[in-house]
Write a protein that binds this DNA or RNA. Structure first.
Lengths: 246, 246
DNA sequence: CCCCCGGCGTTGTCCGGACATGCGGGCGGG
DNA sequence: CCCGCCCGCATGTCCGGACAACGCCGGGGG
């Protein structure tokens, strides 16, 4: 059964394909157990190493799960083919080109406004480190306004600004913490008057508002950034690639 | 050197940690080669299987790459910790709740307008299958307008509408093709008058426009969907999780 | 009748060996 | 001096064996 393939196809790959087919065609239903390693060795007359290599790849592909003492369970009939978007840092998420930079005009500890406190969320009146700035292109043309709110526990980072890379990465290094999750909310609304002024747009012309929250393992907000773009000059593009085929 | 750890830590894991530390501390610089399997077996007095298991995990972690005949090269000093967003299908990307559905009001083959042709992109005047519809909540309240343009080579799908799942998935099944990539563009602009009417908003009130292109392996657009939401009722939320730590 | 414990089956870890395959560099020929 | 072939080395594939750790379930005890 196995020796029909070309000799160039490794044995474990043929075993993997056989099991994969059996799963796809329902001979090994989802929720059921695959034959044990010993059974496969017996039936196919191969060594346990070879069988284990085949099974390892099925685990990799997300088709089965293995538990010591319990066996190999089928968990999916087809390998999951998700659409995935991935960023190394937040520059990609923001789509800021390499030649833009955040020009910080001021930093201070200040109480959160009620609106800000609702966004974070945090108690209104809590004092967070606040950075006000403008993202500018290389030619100094303003692209977006930016407000960054940093949890008071990381306020000492203010003394080290500006940082070379992303602020969240610097905070992670400096304080030995970890951003676990980022939540970005995008909505459209007329530009607030002060924002329109900075960006050189007519008051109440259409804008896009980006709120980004950096959460730690406890889902607490470590950093919140709020930025406004002029809609006439900005389109947000996201590109999702499909995970590779089996 | 290795026997200091608890006996509960597998040998290969201790070797993996040792190599990981060596990489992190620069003893094995990025671009350089790790000791060969045989050298590690010799130095650590373990079998080749054990060394290979440790190296396999370093490959898994993205720290090294291996090439038959060439050796094991260090490719990263720290394991990449990307922020990732992942969807099984496009319902998640669109954030449509379970209880919304796309109500298709009409389908026909029609020539692309110049604007549509520029979005796809395709030759103006090409005849694509066009679906016009409205996404409605369970209570029939309109949420967004929707226009779906389908490449003429898949026009036969029109005879099978409505489909149970996502249209792109049905096309993949029916025609044996594969969506490789999805590009979504979000911008803000005043709602076009007909859209405002359907959504029950004032003309030229602020809206968000979503253009989604489904691309095949040759980067050709298979499907394009264009939808408008009222900005007053809609915020786009994206959540990125960090890939797990080493 | 229920619970605990122990045995058996299964996967995990680790050792040994052998040959195949691919890469790269050294060496020889043009 | 350059090109190509060949050989050595590194990883890939595949075989054998042994014991450990863990899950599950049934049997025995309370």
């Amino acid at each position: 059964m196995l020796d029909a393939a070309q000799p160039r196809v490794p044995l474990y790959a043929r075993i993997e394909a056989m099991l994969r087919d059996g799963i796809a065609e329902g001979r090994h239903p989802v929720g059921g157990l695959l034959p044990t390693e010993a059974e496969l060795c017996d039936q196919l007359q191969v060594s346990r190493h070879t069988v284990r290599e085949a099974l390892r790849r099925l685990v990799e592909a997300g088709l089965v799960e293995r538990r010591q003492g319990a066996g190999t369970m089928v968990v999916a009939r087809q390998p999951p083919r998700d659409f995935v978007q991935s960023f190394r840092d937040m520059r990609g998420l923001s789509q800021y080109a390499e030649d833009t930079r955040l020009q910080v005009n001021g930093q201070r500890m200040a109480a959160l406004t009620p609106e800000e406190a609702a966004l974070v969320p945090a108690d209104p009146g809590a004092r967070w480190l606040r950075l006000d700035g403008v993202r500018v292109a290389e030619d100094r043309v303003p692209i977006a306004t930016a407000l960054v709110l940093i949890h008071p526990r990381f306020a000492a980072i203010g003394a080290e600004l500006p940082v070379r890379g992303a602020i969240h990465a610097e905070i992670e290094r400096r304080f030995g913490v970890e951003v676990r999750e980022v939540v970005q909310e995008i909505c459209a609304a007329p530009l607030p008057v002060p924002v329109a002024e900075v960006l050189g747009r007519k008051p109440r012309s259409v804008g896009m508002r980006f709120v980004r929250r950096y959460l730690d393992a406890e889902e607490e907000t470590m950093i919140l950034s709020l930025s406004w773009h002029s809609a006439e000059r900005y389109t947000y593009v996201m590109r999702l690639r499909r995970t590779e085929a089996p």
